[in-house]
């Protein structure tokens, strides 16, 4: 077990390094000379040269990269060009809301997707099955921004049931819940489809296996057969799917946060890119990439824990 985890950890090191290099390149190729920006447009060339020297911009790339890594280790990502606040502070304030949004989305969409997928598998070929599958194909085909706009239009504007701008506070407060409801609903709607599909095919596969037939033969109720012997084994691929779809979910979150003006990392990244705020962009992309690597790591380890066959490979 430990070996599996260690192996997996080792595998993430080159990825991590790649992400760091990308972040470094991002700042390097950014247009404009940082020394010139700092000195101001009217400064004489000698002053600019002096600042260049002091910032170490004339050093070889490798030295600069090492210095950048050193700063990164100390949690120094520079300052935002727009707000002049430290990038780390800005990012820190945005991580919590994004995690809350993810939690609020997954907490309803995964159970919903698994239930729908199981129902479709149990009543295979029936009208229910076809309706659920049609719903899930439609779900993966709808642009997320359209779902957001329709929900805003109906629930927010027409019926005035829920707020649709910003964040109301932490998740455990009433206002926080009210504000997160629509973004979480939108994001969840695009996630139900893949989960339902995967659950359906996985349950169908498991229900064909011998141990399920044995369970039926010994007279268990259909419900017990499906829940205890079918679903439990069928959930393993579903967990992998959640890992595989993390990127899909992330893309959805970026759009959702932007539309609902929800102060998370996704909106921060889009805003930073659009305003050419390179230090903030770099920081946001680094955090998103790290989070993604972490999710994949956790899912792989979880997979190995749930399915002992994986460890032997």
């Amino acid at each position: 077990m430990l070996e599996t985890i260690l192996n997996r950890l080792l595998l993430s090191i080159p990825v991590l390094l790649g992400v760091l290099i990308l972040g470094f390149v991002l700042v390097q190729v950014a247009p404009g000379d940082p020394a010139r920006v700092l000195a101001g447009p009217a400064a004489p060339p000698e002053i600019v040269a002096q600042i260049r020297e002091r910032m170490g911009l004339d050093d070889p790339m490798v030295v600069q990269f090492m210095r950048y890594m050193g700063r990164l280790m100390q949690g120094d990502l520079g300052r935002s060009l727009i707000s002049n606040r430290e990038v780390v502070v800005e990012l820190g304030a945005a991580i919590g809301p994004t995690l809350e949004l993810m939690l609020a989305c997954l907490i309803w969409s995964i159970p919903a997707g698994i239930s729908l997928g199981t129902l479709a598998a149990v009543w295979r070929g029936s009208l229910v099955d076809r309706a659920i599958m049609a719903f899930s194909v439609a779900g993966v085909s709808l642009p997320i921004f359209f779902i957001c706009l329709v929900l805003i239009q109906l629930v927010g504007v027409k019926w005035q049931l829920l707020p649709f701008i910003g964040r109301g506070g932490p998740l455990w407060t009433v206002d926080g819940l009210r504000h997160i409801a629509l973004p979480a609903l939108s994001l969840g709607l695009i996630f139900i489809g893949p989960v339902a599909r995967m659950t359906r095919s996985s349950v169908l596969e498991v229900l064909r296996l011998d141990h399920v037939r044995t369970a039926r033969a010994k007279g268990l109720t259909e419900r017990a057969v499906i829940v205890r012997h079918g679903l439990r084994n069928a959930l393993i691929p579903v967990i992998t799917l959640i890992g595989l779809q993390a990127g899909y979910l992330l893309g959805g979150a970026v759009v959702t946060e932007t539309i609902f003006s929800y102060p998370g990392i996704g909106r921060l990244a889009v805003g930073a890119i659009l305003s050419s705020d390179f230090p903030l962009t770099q920081g946001a992309i680094l955090v998103l990439a790290l989070a993604f690597i972490l999710v994949n790591l956790v899912v792989d380890v979880l997979y190995a824990l749930l399915d002992p066959r994986v460890q032997k490979k």
């Binding site: 993430s12 990825v15 790649g18 992400v19 990308l22 991002l26 993390a246 990127g247 899909y248 992330l250 893309g251 970026v254 990244a269 889009v270 890119i273 962009t281 992309i285 998103l288 990439a289 993604f292 690597i293 994949n296």
Partner: peptide, 10 residues
């Protein structure tokens, strides 16, 4: 481990 949306943003 580098999703499309992140690559697009970068």
């Amino acid at each position: 481990s580098f999703p499309a949306i992140l690559l697009g943003l970068a």
